[in-house]
Nucleic acid binder design. Structure first.
Lengths: 151, 151
DNA sequence: AAAAATTTGTTTACAAGGAAACAATCTCCA
DNA sequence: TGGAGATTGTTTCCTTGTAAACAAATTTTT
């Protein structure tokens, strides 16, 4: 990896230590870092997985809708989908009722792959926040769901 | 901006909708998006600001320590510090007791600038999570602090 | 004290992601 | 009906951040 070992904890963050945006960024970085440590490169990356997972559960979803829900910009989505297409994981289809749009579907091979990947993906997700109590983890999940406006 | 307007909420996320890592990523993206909408480009970016803020409160802090606390990798820190140096905002000094290290200090001009910037920065930070109740926001902050291991 | 291993910062090459401009299509309304 | 304006996806260029290899300095081992 990269980070050194000698940890000096005596850094004064002042007001930053209670700033919600700052804490969220740190939390996210921590989650990603541990993800790559534990799950490694052998599998799908988190971004790729979430895209494929959502396509699996919403066959024929349009790029724009996918991007809105996962907060992926259109320019970036184009690249992601092309990469997945090049790997033979998704199929693009222009619908008749709106020939600007593109509908995405998983190939059968990809569906299998995603279901397999979901095993270790959600195993990891379940391990996130293990330094919190069961109740705290539950609370945090609920608060984040409200924060981002899911349900 | 970029995101389209027509929002289709009927996307099935299945288990993803309770996955902590996924929710955290979404939350972070939402915060960043709103940051750039509201605060705009006229001021410091959040990453730059946090670096300068921490240097202000820890004069002579070493790059490595700064990086550990803000979870910025060394390769990236080098670039950030050089950019700040080029803007005349920080000073680099190699200490006698360890000539590999670099100690960073703000220039007087930068100290002023950071104190000014802190006004709108923390105003924004205070507005994060406005769709939560006061108690929920408090809870979320506390849980995130425990999650990332601050205090 | 000398060799081996570690730490720190840097460089280089690359991946992830965003902004702006664009073409094609669709919608709305005068 | 026929523009005017909006939406969708794409392309190009740019910013942010990472990985790997490296040099210099320090620490550890023997």
């Amino acid at each position: 990896m990269d980070m050194p070992v000698r940890t000096s904890e005596d850094v004064d963050l002042d007001r930053l230590s209670t700033a919600l945006g700052f804490l969220m960024r740190l939390a996210q970085l921590k989650i990603y870092e541990r993800f790559f440590e534990e799950v490694g490169e052998h599998h799908l990356k988190p971004g790729e997985f979430s895209v494929l997972w959502v396509i699996l559960h919403n066959p024929g979803i349009r790029q724009s809708v996918l991007g809105q829900r996962l907060m992926i910009k259109r320019a970036h989505m184009t690249k992601l989908i092309r990469a997945l297409e090049d790997q033979g994981l998704v199929t693009r289809q222009v619908p008749d009722d709106d020939r600007r749009a593109v509908e995405i579907t998983l190939t059968p091979a990809a569906a299998d792959k995603v279901r397999q990947a979901s095993h270790w993906f959600f195993t990891y997700e379940d391990s996130v926040g293990a330094n919190l109590t069961r109740d705290e983890r539950q609370q945090l999940t609920g608060l984040l769901r409200k924060f981002v406006g899911i349900d």
